[in-house]
Nucleic acid binder design. Structure first.
Lengths: 117, 117
DNA sequence: AAATTATTTCAGCGGTTATTGAAATATCTC
DNA sequence: GAGATATTTCAATAACCGCTGAAATAATTT
């Protein structure tokens, strides 16, 4: 992960509503959830939510797909893991032995997916 | 760690120059380094650097102490660990068993040992 | 095809951010 | 104390942020 990617991801998460959105999507699992449900859960105006989704997406932290008239947003666990990995590496450089390996982040309890990848 | 603290820490790190500053301080170890050396290493104007230090400090990521006419800034590893922990917990909630424990972050081992990335 | 639902786009606004240059403060040396 | 060094404070500015309201687009239902 490049530094610019890390900065982008950090910036995307460094906002109250966006952090909430991302957490909600993480909880929702790999299938994600429709924008409207997120708006309802977090009580955000739909256009405001679009604004935040755009930022999360630009930072590579979420994906979107259309399903009927709904847009389904889903967290990208790999991106989150890459960020944690980057921070850990940068934090622990010089003392790798004393640091736990980068935290692995998997979808919240979900679907019978293979968890070891 | 409260959400507001996490957001503050994320925001503090979500800026090119500040991320550089923090990384440099992490490398510098617990003793920290004087503001002037940071300015020299990163080629930042001293007043600009003060601005960024203030933000890192407000976010609890660095400490300062005066030594003669120099101000010595040092990374707060505990704060960084708390952030990683927060992100990990929030990322892995619902599937705690499947996630690696929070990364532990220690000061870079005393000397300037070259490490492979 | 008209009406309904879901989401995005657009324009605008006040607030914040990162930077610069000039001046001020603190400390040390002579 | 005068002068030099290290850092901060202050004022100004352009750029970006997060939010709102109104309108547009897309897909579904009738």
């Amino acid at each position: 992960m490049k530094k610019s990617d890390a900065v982008a991801a950090l910036a995307a998460l460094a906002q109250d509503n966006r952090l909430d959105v991302f957490r909600l999507l993480v909880e929702a699992g790999p299938e994600g959830m429709p924008a409207g449900s997120v708006a309802g859960a977090l009580k955000l105006a739909p256009n405001t939510l679009t604004f935040h989704f755009d930022r999360l997406r630009d930072a590579g932290l979420v994906t979107v797909r259309r399903q009927g008239r709904s847009m389904i947003y889903a967290a990208r666990y790999d991106a989150m893991n890459a960020l944690l990995d980057y921070l850990t590496k940068n934090c622990c450089q010089g003392a790798p032995d004393q640091c736990a390996p980068a935290a692995a982040c998997k979808p919240a309890r979900g679907k019978r997916e293979k968890m070891n990848a």
